[in-house]
Structures are given as C-alpha cells and as structure tokens.
C-alpha cells in the first residue's frame, strides 16, 4: 500500500509541476500583455520606452528564465498582485475558495442524498416502468447544458414567479443566514440537477451488478428480509466505486461550477478564473488556475487511494 501511495503521490506532484509551466506559458500567450495595457493607458510611450519597460519587468528574457524566476518567488509564497482587485493575488483566493467549497459541498450532498434511494429502488426493480422512467430522467439530467438550465431556472423562479433571487449572494453587507440560504437555492439546484443523473446511473449499475452476485442469493436463501439484503448486503458493495465518483466530482466541481457561478454571479473559484482570464489579470489567473489544477489532481489522487484502501484487489496491480 505505501509503495502504491508513494508512486501515486509522485506522479501527481510531477503533473502539477509540469502544469505550472504549461499554465505559465499559456498565460503569457493571452492577448493584451501588461506592456500593451501600459501603452493603451499612455499613448506617448515610444518604442524605446517599451523596450526599457520590458527590460525592467524581465519580459525580454526567454520564457524558461521568466518561469524559473516566477517559480522561485512562488515557492516563497509570493504570487504577485492582482490587477483587478488591487490586492495580493493569494489574498483574493481565500474567500472565493470557501464560497466554492460551500456551493460544492451542499450540491454534492444533495445529489448523493437524492441519487441513493432512487438508484437503489430502480436497481431492485430493474426493467420495470419505474426503472425506465428513472433512466430517461437521468439522460435528461446528463444532457442538459448547465448554463441553459440556469437560465431557465432564473426565468421561471426569479423572473416569472419571483420566488427566489437570481443572484447567488445577497447584496446586503450583513445578510442573515436565511437570506444567504435563499440566494443559494437556484445555484445549488442547477448543480444538483446536473450531477444527480450521473450519480443515479452509476449507483444503479453497481447495484444491479452486486444484486447478481452469489452472496446475495445466499443472503436471500438464509431467510433475510429482502430490504435488509438490498440496503445492507448489496448497497455496501455497490457504494465502494461510488466513493471514487464522489471524489472525482469534488475535483471536477472546484472549477466545473464555473458556468453556474458565472450565471448566478456567485463569487467562487470558477467565476474568479473566468474574470481573471477575461480581465488580463495575469497573476491572479495563473495562481487560480494552478490552485484548481492542484485541487483537481489531489481529488483524483484521493479517489484512487480511497478505492485502493477500500478494495485490496486494486493495490496489487
């Protein structure tokens, strides 16, 4: 196990290190670099000035040297200032990450709690009308474009009915807990609808497979109540792979909520990355991109390790 763990950890670290260079290079290729911005702010700058400015900021150096310089600073915890927020880039991230974690935690929990009973019931009655209806709904949930779903939900619940606010966070400086929760409903609903179909399909497939195993027949044969066989014997085995799906979804949602966050103006990591990329905020975009990359890779690693820890057969590969 420890050998497996060390190897996986090493691979993940290498991937993040590699991606830090790739992201650095990509950010440098985005339109409108800082010198262009200075030039547009002050058209009197001459080509000589520009060359001098480039030299001051080290932009005349080859990319590898610039990257190493950035890396050296980054490793001491210095990530530069955010252009959009006029704060150290690292200070901008903290609250955003907390917001995303809240959104993600609530939506994933809701999706799991809704998916479990539906999937188990569908698997227990595989092939019936209920099972087929669930399957059709799952396809709908998987296939709906998130931004359009958000748009339709806003249209129905905020514009037509006026029940819920269309923004993800209240405007007031010190809103009550109830007010915050009310604003969270639509974004959470969007993410939950988008996630629940996949979860149901996954658990259902695992359940159907588990229900076909010999130990289920044994459990039935020794006279256990069918409900106990279903929820205890079958579900425990079916949930094993589901743990990894949850971990993978966590990783995907760190940045995957980007569209939902943007649609509802919810200040999370996804919206931050989008705003930073669109607003030429190089330092912030780079740091945020690296952070979500590291977090996603870490969640994937966690999924692998959790699976191996729960199922000893995996480790021996």
């Amino acid at each position: 196990m420890s050998h497996f763990l060390v190897r996986r950890l090493l691979q993940a670290t290498m991937l993040v290190a590699l991606m830090s260079f790739v992201c650095y290079a990509l950010i440098g290729l985005m339109p409108g670099d800082p010198i262009d911005l200075m030039l547009s702010a002050d058209p009197r700058l001459t080509p000589d000035d520009i060359a001098r400015l480039k030299a001051i900021h080290g932009l005349d150096q080859p990319i590898l040297e610039r990257y190493l310089a950035w890396l050296g600073k980054a490793l001491t915890g210095e990530f530069g200032y955010s252009r959009l927020y006029s704060q150290p880039a690292a200070a901008v991230l903290g609250p955003r990450l907390a917001n995303t974690a809240l959104l993600m935690g609530v939506s994933l929990t809701a999706a799991a709690l809704i998916a479990l009973p539906i999937a188990v019931t569908a698997a227990a009655h595989a092939g019936t009308g209920f099972d087929r209806a669930v399957n059709a709904l799952c396809f709908a949930g998987i296939s709906v474009p998130t931004f359009w779903l958000a748009l339709v939900l806003i249209l129905v619940f905020a514009v037509e009915l006026g029940w819920l606010p269309a923004a993800g966070l209240p405007m007031a400086r010190d809103p009550g807990l109830a007010e915050r929760a009310r604003h969270l409903v639509l974004p959470v609903l969007t993410l939950t609808i988008a996630a629940v179909g996949g979860h149901v399909r996954y658990i259902r497939a695992a359940m159907v497979e588990a229900l076909g195993q010999d130990y289920i027949r044994t459990a039935h044969a020794k006279g256990l109540h069918p409900r106990r066989v279903l929820w205890r014997h079958a579900l425990r085995n079916a949930l094993l792979p589901y743990v990894t799906i949850l971990a993978l979804d966590c990783g995907a949602l760190v940045s995957g909520a980007l569209v939902t966050e943007t649609m509802f103006g919810y200040p999370g990591m996804g919206k931050l990355i989008f705003d930073a990329v669109m607003g030429n905020d190089y330092n912030l975009a780079l740091l945020a991109l690296l952070l979500v990359t590291a977090l996603t890779v870490a969640c994937n690693l966690l999924a692998d390790v959790a699976y191996a820890a729960l199922d000893p057969r995996i480790r021996q590969r």
Binding site: I273, V277, L289, T296
Partner: peptide, 27 residues
C-alpha cells in the same frame, strides 16, 4: 498512459477557456 491519466486528472473547463483565449498571433 501516464499522459492519459494526467489529462484526465486536469480541470478541463478552465484550461479550455485559457486555450480558447490564447492569442494565435503570439504563437
């Protein structure tokens, strides 16, 4: 396969956004 694992483990949407924003002339 390591490359494959790596690509799977990446947050695709933000990376695609950056890639879509890259200025082709700078390439």
């Amino acid at each position: 396969m390591r490359v494959c694992d790596g690509v799977i483990a990446l947050p695709m949407l933000p990376l695609l956004i950056v890639l879509a924003a890259v200025d082709l002339q700078k390439l």
